[in-house]
């Protein structure tokens, strides 16, 4: 897989520092799992963070902290709670990257002709939402911009807009400064993993007309 489009470095750094919310972290994590170059960048930030930890001003622990910890170590490790594998809803696609396979999915729904959306249920989804977006070959998305941010990772197929062509592994970042109209490749459907905060703003009279019905 040749990856041509990568997340901006500040997102990788925020990922390494542990400052992204669940949805954004999921998208960056799935990209990095496929991208040695971004993994190296994240590892570099983690090493810098380690150096910062070394130089942090120590704050004393409680007097009995070490003894308490040793007592906990001598207890048998609590077996992790059985992960609920009772997945009620099947993902849109049964051939997903490993990290996504352990996710829980909501019910998929049609958001526009040739476009299906399946929410990913995350523990903390206050700021942004994550979902799979499936689009039929040749779908023209409506020209849109964003009130928040949109992180998109191509899992299958391709799409293109003025930023270039996006194929599996490629990452696309959109925010209020980006105004684009993606077109899905004509040869096969396109499956993307998306994290979105805020809303889409659709342009043109058609966009304004249908935006109440397009629920992304």
């Amino acid at each position: 897989m040749t990856i041509n489009h990568h997340p901006p470095e500040d997102l990788l750094a925020d990922f390494a520092a542990g400052r992204l919310d669940d949805a954004d972290r999921l998208v960056i994590g799935v990209h990095a799992a496929q991208c040695p170059r971004c993994r190296r960048f994240i590892a570099a930030i983690e090493q810098l963070a380690g150096a910062a930890l070394e130089q942090a001003n120590p704050v004393s622990m409680a007097d009995n902290a070490f003894a308490t910890l040793m007592a906990r170590i001598d207890e048998p490790a609590a077996s992790p709670p059985a992960t609920a594998s009772s997945r009620s809803v099947q993902p849109l696609d049964d051939d997903l990257p490993e990290i996504l396979r352990s996710c829980r999915f909501g019910k998929s729904r049609r958001v526009a002709p040739g476009v299906k959306l399946q929410p990913i249920i995350l523990p903390d989804t206050d700021k942004s939402r994550a979902f799979l977006l499936w689009s039929a070959p040749g779908t023209r998305m409506l020209e849109h911009t964003h009130t928040g941010t949109e992180l998109t990772l191509v899992l299958k197929g391709s799409f293109s807009h003025e930023g270039g062509e996006y194929r599996p592994g490629d990452f696309d970042f959109g925010d209020g400064d980006v105004d684009h109209q993606p077109i899905v490749g004509s040869d096969m459907p396109c499956l993307c993993l998306v994290a979105m905060s805020g809303d889409l703003k659709l342009h043109g009279w058609l966009g304004r007309l249908i935006s109440p019905f397009v629920r992304l």
Binding site: F15, G18, D22, R25, L26, I28, G29, V30, A32, A33, P36, R39, R40, I42, A43, A44, Q47, L48, P81, T83, A84, I99, S102, C103, R104, I120, I121, L122, P123
Partner: peptide, 25 residues
């Protein structure tokens, strides 16, 4: 909802990557 995201950070970095990271830093 259980812990849905099984820590995407726990990714292995290969050894040849590691020496490049160290050299870059």
């Amino acid at each position: 909802a259980p812990e849905a995201v099984d820590s995407p950070e726990t990714m292995m970095t290969r050894r040849d990557d590691v020496s490049r990271v160290a050299a870059a830093l």
